[in-house]
Design a protein around this nucleic acid. Sequence first.
DNA 1: AATGAATGAGATTTCATTCAT
DNA 2: TATGAATGAAATCTCATTCAT
Lengths: 209, 209, 209, 209
Amino acid sequence: MNKEQRRPPGRPKVNEQNSSTRDLILKTALELFLDRGFPLVSIDNIAQSSGVTKATVYYYFSSKAELFTEAIVRMMDRITNRIQSILSEDLPLKTRLLKMTHAHLKATYRIDLDHFMQGAGDSLSEQQIDRIRLAEARMYEAVEQAFIEAMDRKEIPKINPEFATQIYLALLKVGNHRGKDHRPMFSSVEETARHIICFFWNGLVNTEP
Amino acid sequence: MNKEQRRPPGRPKVNEQNSSTRDLILKTALELFLDRGFPLVSIDNIAQSSGVTKATVYYYFSSKAELFTEAIVRMMDRITNRIQSILSEDLPLKTRLLKMTHAHLKATYRIDLDHFMQGAGDSLSEQQIDRIRLAEARMYEAVEQAFIEAMDRKEIPKINPEFATQIYLALLKVGNHRGKDHRPMFSSVEETARHIICFFWNGLVNTEP
Amino acid sequence: MNKEQRRPPGRPKVNEQNSSTRDLILKTALELFLDRGFPLVSIDNIAQSSGVTKATVYYYFSSKAELFTEAIVRMMDRITNRIQSILSEDLPLKTRLLKMTHAHLKATYRIDLDHFMQGAGDSLSEQQIDRIRLAEARMYEAVEQAFIEAMDRKEIPKINPEFATQIYLALLKVGNHRGKDHRPMFSSVEETARHIICFFWNGLVNTEP
Amino acid sequence: MNKEQRRPPGRPKVNEQNSSTRDLILKTALELFLDRGFPLVSIDNIAQSSGVTKATVYYYFSSKAELFTEAIVRMMDRITNRIQSILSEDLPLKTRLLKMTHAHLKATYRIDLDHFMQGAGDSLSEQQIDRIRLAEARMYEAVEQAFIEAMDRKEIPKINPEFATQIYLALLKVGNHRGKDHRPMFSSVEETARHIICFFWNGLVNTEP
DNA sequence: AATGAATGAGATTTCATTCAT
DNA sequence: TATGAATGAAATCTCATTCAT
């Protein structure tokens, strides 16, 4: 009767600290995976960059594939959130796309999906691939939905929304292109975004294949 | 290990016989590299798929990086030739682009340049990277040149030709996109090409960023 | 990871509660060790099967070797008790052996001593090995003693009692043999026991090498 | 026309040398596996004991499981041959068994089949297990056949031959038993063999369960 | 021209063990 | 009493590369 307030047994989850190590590993891993691709990142690389040992990585993640999956899905979910947040503002579609393009060009991450899936495929389980594909689909849908609504509101003409989405994403990547001398094509991120959206919008509104 | 090489009928030309093994290896290697990317293709894979031994591969190519470089540069040169051949015909630019798009969508190879450079970078020497970058640049220039000439001929308005080229190549890739159910977005290669060029052309001719 | 421990009804006796976890671990460990042998059982396996964490196992046992030793010695002691109980009954030796054989064939545990010592040896300290060897010897002696007494009583002719014991134990193991189709050699445990004892008894009583 | 005698291309298989390395590894591996059991022998152990590198072991055997299988099956086949050779002599069964027992007790290898299968099971493929089981069955059959023929010739009474075989093999193992002081039970191999066969023969000929 | 043998370095993964709480 | 976090050492396996023939 006197044990009113029992402390849970065991070492308390040092909540911040705890999630810190796991998150640190995830963060480091994501950077490396994005930079070099799945096969060229070793667990040792991740561990060293995170300042822990290999075994610690395996304490948190059961395999390299699992760590990869978790890192990628997390990133995609974050991107999806950002996309949804921008696209749900009460502004003309063109303005929202411009904002989004602008935001994307400044971010470090790239949406080169198959880019790093290349090389990982063989190592991932069906289930892991599914998890990634699902996160990928959510990203796409966030954009696709914006086009569908804009069509409903007659803001743009009817067009295959999947096509529009893929085109838009492809153009986004162009923004990061560097020429032979490694210099960007336009002088500022703003200008690049404007050119891309201008090009995209023209293609979108004048449709008669 | 299984040497299923069928010898062509007739007396073999000695020097072609000679180059035959080398070419066979190059061809096999290219396929594998395109399919899986540099790090996931082992010399053993290439040797086995070619029906020779690892040591034979090393007889012809001094390293994996060298073999990779040679294979990629060769492919790019072939593509460059094809591009130039199509683009140098005496037809309106839009028609030539349509033909080229059509041809590209039917070909097996993809121009996902960075795609497989990803993962190879660390292993290639500066010189090898340069050779590839040069071949890549030649490919781009073939397209870029067409835009420049079209601008000179006032067929299209003035625009950053590098930008136009990258946009065009990005749109090309969209043609190969498959949705969740792994089906293409349009019912035929022809229709896909038409949509892409239509979109591209609209963006191209109405330019006021 | 899944803590499916159901608490028994009623107020738990504190000191039994105490020994409960320890015993649970010992019991689980024994099963696993018998099943897979020392090297193929990990502390994690034991912990998980017991519904506790690795650290808890280490709270009760200072090392894997110690846990192994304790589990094995316990089992042997239990077997020794059972043997002594059967062999000390007031019946002809042959009858007692038959009963014991019968009991052994129905029990799950096996007396394949070296069987699991194999693989453990390197990891055990001298002292731990001694403890096990001692328990093993006690088991043997229980049987050996029965032979010695039977010889004293002229129930069987003079014979090296150690030899007789080992022969008997070897024959016991034959009872568990399964043929190619995984079926036993005789239709019932009773029949198997009878065959074994018959064979053994014949060898025992007609001795003139 | 002048190439009457063409030497095969490539480095010739240095026939003895070649098979020497492979055989050396097999031989070393067998010793270690018999001594410590599958899980406690590392490829490094085998490589070092063979005076080659780990990679060389993998050059000849695709996996630890494969090496194990090959080594065990080889040994069993050798034993089978020896058994058949002894048992097919034109002598009374008892004499032949005595010879065989004698030979077995002097040999280093033991027929503790399940002994090392224990611990290997999880790592072997179905196919590999089958190969071993088959070799094991061949060994048993060689003995079983001798009993069947002896029964046909009325040399011994009718008895379940599988039972007889397993009993015999079990008794063989007893011959290797060492007591607490690590000394054998009898003073010489000959005497041990005589005791075992005497015991076995008595059990065999007086059968009425 | 082509090969079989051999290797060193490094990849992923497992596991007994420690320690602060 | 029981635990979550972390680790060092070792195990299995891969692969680009060399070399004598």
